[in-house]
Design a protein around this nucleic acid. Structure first.
Lengths: 241, 241
DNA sequence: GTCTATACACAGATAGAC
DNA sequence: GTCTATCTGTGTATAGAC
């Protein structure tokens, strides 16, 4: 699979097994606080709990979601939920950690094997955008509910955010050293890239109202960033239209 | 006062009287639901209530702010608050409306009298950024608590957001017609501009950590947008450094 | 492993004194 | 105009049945 040319459909197919891997990791990390034995049962219910949490919270806020709401949404009883986490706040922490792991693992894995800096930049842009589409409810949730995290967890969230920004800054910087990009400030360039990527999942209503698909937005971002950095195209790398 | 060259300090001095005007408007619009007679008393307490609401909500969410918290923050008793609004939700609506009016009035007022399209663009960029600095708690609040609004009020919030974006798109478009800007898609250009402006108030921790002042960010945005549109500078218009 | 029933705390809102 | 005291609903979390 050529990652440089991938579209959103390719991306979703590719990451399905990675998603399962990361659920197993999440279960292992919380093995001590989950009072259920069978791993398959845990994963099945945890996914229902996470999905319901995202759906309800994104509509009215995590704080406003009662455990009764969540129980109904996840198909469990209100008491039964407490076999999966000790309290509401722990659910929040668990879900945030799970999502961060998924983003970091997939983003770094796909970018790693790119053959050159121009590909690296394009793959990083597309992967981040496609992740934020695939996990849109989580991205939105993560941003909106960051304030409810405990101090150490909020710190982790910020570090994770900056790590992603540093990835873009590093790609820009290395491409510049290789003489492939114009000398724009890498940190500011990365900040602009993040802001434009963020628009996709934070202002989603705007794009759906304007009938802009994720593949169109991907092309737009790639074109914009490459124009900004004045990327010198090669024969083998072309934009899909 | 030359608005094209204004910095943040100039801006704050300029809008202080406008702020008072808009408080008077807010009081008039809610005269029927406020059970207090003296207008000076209302404005004094309403400002304390609004400020406390923003401070507490931005820390832990509007939903999580109890009326007892608010009473303490505003220096009133829990029962006394209800002289200023019929219920917690009405307070939310009132505060959102008040902020929107302030943004729209000031933004359009300052842009209106610009002598040419290049000035118009620069004044719009600076005014929006400076507004989001002056009213940072409101901007953050407005974004985070939009989901708690009633359906018609949420609609108003979206329209207000799009109106601002349309203002930028119109300036870009008019400047292009006058042959001053490169032919970039005005709507997408406006979307990028909004995303970058939004970064300032949504990811504020990032900029304060990096010691970037609002005046520096203003210059950065102006330079970035003018480079993107390839604005042909005139003798009279220069960037402050 | 999951349910029902319930404890106990705290929320928003009102009444009536001052 | 603002306060104190209080009503009533709903929240999280637990205990013990199945």
């Amino acid at each position: 699979m050529d990652l440089v040319e991938m579209n959103y459909a390719d991306f979703t197919k590719m990451i399905l097994t990675l998603k399962t891997d990361i659920y197993h990791q999440t279960v292992q990390e919380n093995r001590n606080i989950i009072h259920v034995n069978k791993e398959q049962t845990i994963i099945k219910n945890l996914e229902k709990i996470f999905d319901a949490t995202l759906e309800i919270s994104n509509e009215k806020g995590f704080q406003a979601m009662s455990m009764r709401d969540l129980a109904k949404g996840a198909g469990l009883s209100s008491g039964g939920l407490y076999a999966y986490f000790p309290g509401k706040m722990d659910l929040l922490t668990m879900l945030q950690k799970h999502g961060r792991k998924m983003v970091q693992e997939i983003l770094f894995k796909l970018v790693k094997d790119a053959p050159d800096h121009v590909s690296k930049l394009r793959i990083a842009l597309k992967t981040h955008l496609y992740l934020s589409e695939f996990m849109q409810p989580w991205f939105y949730f993560s941003y909106m509910e960051a304030k409810n995290l405990s101090e150490p967890e909020r710190h982790n969230a910020i570090e994770s955010e900056l790590t992603t920004e540093k990835l873009f800054a590093a790609i820009v910087s290395q491409g510049q050293d290789a003489g492939l990009f114009e000398p724009r400030d890498p940190q500011l360039t990365a900040a602009i890239i993040k802001a434009i990527l963020q628009d996709w999942y934070l202002k989603r209503w705007k794009f759906s109202r304007r009938n802009i698909s994720v593949d169109q937005y991907a092309n737009f971002i790639v074109e914009f960033v490459e124009a900004f950095l004045d990327v010198h195209g090669t024969e083998t790398i072309r934009l899909k239209n």
